Simulated assay, not measured.
Amino acid sequence: MDRIKHAFASKHNLLNTYFTAGYPSLHDTLPLAEALVGAGADILEIGMPFSDPLADGPVIQGSSTVALANGMNLPVLFAQLQGLRAAVPDAPVLLMGYLNPVMQFGVEEFCRQAAAVGVDGLILPDLPLDEYEETYQPIFQKHGLKAVFLITPQTSAERIRRLDDLSEAFLYLVSGPGTTGGTTPTDVPAQQEYFERIAGMKLRNPRLIGFGIANKSGFDQACQHAEGAIIGSALIQALKDVDDAPAAAARFVRGIKQA
């Protein structure tokens, strides 16, 4: 079953929650996944911690540092994810990270193990598009993994069309300049024009908006311009220094999705 397509076909105002594997504690990955979906998260984006996460702001960078110190790495993550589909049978699950660790692991083996545990797609922001199309797309497709690509306000119309043609999942609209966890852009008219411009292109794939969305108000605003939104840094912040991370995650999601 294509869980990503099913989610977009059957639901509106989707919430994609990002959390870093191995944070706040090494063995929180599956309990957090189960808690987030149980509270109403529609898509899970599990971050693979990396020492130099270029697209991530200080909150997610900090969580990666903690997770790496806790002992998280790709072999540990794949071992933990053996129980993924028992914990969350139906929710789409994406792995988000950077190309260097994936290449060190071996792209083919990485995709094989990701598919074997039930991962649906990958977000690799630093994967060059030409390399994806020429080298990696056949490997992704062989293992049934969907690539998710990022679009920014500076992305040309030509490139957006190309990303839309190559994607089999959804398009990740970066809400503005900067890294994850940034503040809401002050130039609201420019952001509005950006969202309207993308909507006017009548792209084939659905869209989720991310970067800088931290609360219900921001989530609701994003859903006016796309099929849903991605929240990461605010969730990570909510997990800091808590006694029960899954309970804190569930409270956070309920606060976003409440009517």
Rank of each mutant, 00 (worst) to 15 (best):
A7T: 00
K11G: 08
H12L: 10
L14N: 02
G22N: 04
H27G: 06
H27I: 06
D28S: 13
A33K: 13
E34Y: 07
G40H: 01
L44P: 12
P53V: 10
T65C: 09
T65Y: 12
L68M: 15
M72V: 07
L81M: 14
L84P: 04
L84R: 02
V93W: 01
L95P: 09
M96E: 11
G97A: 13
Y98V: 07
L99Y: 10
N100Q: 01
F105E: 05
F105C: 11
V107K: 07
E108V: 13
C111M: 03
A116W: 05
V119Y: 09
G121E: 00
L124W: 03
L127F: 04
L129G: 10
D130G: 10
T135K: 12
Q141E: 15
A147C: 14
L150Y: 08
I151W: 02
Q154K: 12
T155A: 01
I160N: 01
R161E: 11
D165A: 14
F170W: 15
S175T: 05
G176L: 05
G178T: 06
T180D: 08
P185Y: 00
T186F: 11
A190N: 03
E196C: 13
I213K: 00
A214K: 15
D220V: 11
E227F: 03
A229Q: 02
Q237W: 03
A238V: 04
D241V: 04
A259V: 09
